[in-house]
Amino acid sequence: MIGVGKTKQYANVLDRPISKGKQEVSLSAFAFLFSELVQYNQTQVDNIAELERRLEDAGYAVGARVLELLCHREKGNRRETRLLGILSFVHSTVWKVLFGKVADSLEKGTEHEDEYMISEKELLVNRFISVPKDMGTFNCGAFVAGIVRGVLDGAGFPAVVTAHFVPVDGQQRPRTTILIKFAEEVLVREARLG
């Protein structure tokens, strides 16, 4: 946290010491804000796909900044260059900072070589959300998918990232799976690196 007295000395945001990331706000403050983000974007679109794309765009902007911040603060200005490295960075480091916990699971897709999944039983952004029936498969997790895409893209791992509800046996609420499909060039490079 930046001290009150100190703030005045620095004219430029970059001159200030970087925050340690320990500050918190109430979950409801975030939930209220997120709900406004969704509601505002609902007024800007005609269909669900468009709404998800806009939420993803908003998330992308967050992800790009999170990558920069965390590489600097948590990784001593280094960033992962290998596929598994960056995936575990997202699953562990990014998740821990943003959501206070490591993601529930990180798996490789069984059908396609280029697909990976990060799953979360109760994704923070979906915690207070119930999707009306007429909105079909809409998933607010698109915002988190955007964050993941922002981090990956910024690190040089372009991918298509989408959020899906997956029903779980014996559970009333479905879990959210973030599906990451890497661009071909990423796999080609990865194969070359051996």
């Binding site: 109430s26 403050a29 975030f30 983000l37 902007a61 967050v62 900072v97």
Partner: peptide
């Protein structure tokens, strides 16, 4: 929640 998530989300808005 972490204030940074809140801050960056607000920035995105």
């Amino acid at each position: 929640v972490n204030a940074e998530l809140f801050t960056l989300t607000y920035g995105a808005i």
